[in-house]
Write a protein that binds this DNA or RNA. Structure first.
Lengths: 202, 202
DNA sequence: CTGGGTTAGTATCGATTCGAAACTAATTCC
DNA sequence: GGAATTAGTTTCGAATCGATACTAACCCAG
């Protein structure tokens, strides 16, 4: 099977998994929005970051977000760092809505794969995402854990490592490291060292 | 990374690869339509099959196809087997349009993977597609080569194997075997035997 | 601290898309 | 022959989306 067929199969898998659209009163665009704000870190839970992630315009993204806010799935809170910026967070209603995410059909199918197959798939998808994003000049939205801007300073006293983003110069909590960030960028060469650093036993 | 994150990454990869929409004057829906009719076998190049593949209604699919016919990308020819049915085939214009398919960004990224990684990816995507399709009760659109309806009779005299679909009771040419079919169904158990039969050295 | 350039977000408008439903015509089944 | 089904089309209304214009806040230079 040639590369185009595989590419098309991936597109088909995504389309089929996205569901028949309206589930639990939410449109596909709204589901995508909820998913994004559930996974993005606090720097990226903005209209602009979501617009870039969803490959749409800020105007469209603003409309979708506004609808979710008015329906009680998201809360709107102005940023304390930037007076222009607004951060959106999931409400309890938003979180519980994700329990019925139509994309879970795909998640469960992934869960049925053998662990090594699953990891291989994850690696391949991540690599393809970076590659395609690079050729398009778009950010690839990875997690801080594998980002070249992650600064990890081992605090000798307590033994607890402390993290920070040296691009935004903001501290990062340990459980922030797996969230999506609009500023994600892979390090050019030492990927293995980084993955060993972050991927060790927790 | 949990299964939901991987699922979302796949959706993200597909969305990003689908392109910013209008390329060469074709909309995303039109690109999908062209891709489908380029890969579907002659039993599946119909409005209904495409509607099922694209997870939309026949009405919407009919509109999209009509647009492509009027713009010269597809030809419309009534079926000789069924007076209701209409088959659509790509014109030269349609074929050459696919040379600028925005999905090729993903295809090329797949081509850069190591061969074994690529094959593993193909297998995983195929399995996930079947699994998700099964839970939704939708056809999974595989190729005849791996379909349980493929009847393969080795013709002893010439040495050439001759193929047929024992569901539609129609002959199949050797180069039809890799096209998509709406009637695709995997055999329940002997998948390895089938893949060995079809996937051997060419 | 004023002014130009940039960025975050919003509002509006028009085109496109999509789904639901009604419809025609051909096929199948009893 | 007639009911039920299927392939395809059409129409209409709602939703989506992109382009554009706009406001407000930030940043930097002078």
């Amino acid at each position: 099977m040639d590369n185009r067929s595989i590419a098309q199969s991936i597109a088909q898998l995504a389309r089929m998994s996205a569901g028949d659209g309206h589930v639990c009163g939410l449109t596909p665009a709204q589901w995508n929005t909820l998913r994004f704000f559930a996974r993005a870190n606090r720097f990226s839970r903005t209209v602009s970051a979501f617009a870039e992630f969803h490959a749409t315009t800020r105007g469209t993204a603003s409309q979708t977000v506004k609808g979710l806010v008015s329906e009680g799935y998201l809360t709107r809170s102005p940023s304390d760092l930037d007076g222009r910026s607004v951060r959106f967070d999931l409400t309890d209603k938003g979180r519980s809505a994700l329990d019925h995410d139509p994309l879970d059909a795909l998640s469960e199918a992934i869960g049925k794969l053998a662990p090594d197959v699953r990891n291989q798939l994850e690696t391949s998808v991540k690599r393809l995402t970076e590659e395609v994003a690079r050729t398009r000049g778009k950010p690839s939205f990875g997690s801080c854990r594998f980002c070249c801007h992650l600064a990890c300073a081992l605090r000798k006293s307590g033994g607890e490592p402390s993290y920070a983003c040296d691009l935004l110069e903001q501290p990062l909590a340990a459980n922030d490291l797996d969230d999506l960030c609009v500023n994600f960028e892979t390090a050019p060469s030492n990927a293995t060292a980084r993955s060993r650093r972050g991927g060790g036993p927790s």
